[in-house]
Amino acid sequence: MSHAPLLKRLVLICLGMFAFAFAMVPLYDVFCDVTGLNGKPSLEQAKQSTHINEKREIDVSFTTHAQSGAPFKVKSHEYSVVVKPGAMREVLFKAKNISNEDKVMQAVPSVSPGKAAKYLHKMACFCFDQQPLKAGEEVEFKLLFYVDTELPDDVEEITLSYTVFDISKQLVASN
């Protein structure tokens, strides 16, 4: 009996599964978007909100964390703000490159609790882009956001955390 047809099919399964491992990367992002897994909020500009829920108040607090070795100081002006769902809110962040070299900063947002991630809509965020900061440069960044009126009732406070990375080296490596 010829083994070739079966062999071919089995090898194809193997190759398919190897490809599947890599397909899991985009699949995982989709999965995170749907379920709010890992508090990964969207990195794209959101649509305008349509109406405001005047009865509810949500605490939104901000925290930033410069990853080990990232020479940035980033801090929001206020530690936390109280917002009504649907209402637009602006928060300013002060960011500084504390090294004596030009650097490129990338802020990665993360929302807690995870299930609130897809209800926090950002209209403008410094995390949408890579931010080049000259040595010692200090700039002010704007975050414009609103909380969706559909936010589950049991969520009373949301934390938006930014981890800032120094990606200057990766940029050099990939160019």
């Binding site: 890992n38 508090g39 990853q67 990665v108 993360s110 807690s112 609790p113 995870g114 981890t163």
Partner: peptide
């Protein structure tokens, strides 16, 4: 505690 992400 995951680097780059926040857990609660």
């Amino acid at each position: 505690a995951n680097p780059g992400f926040i857990n609660e």
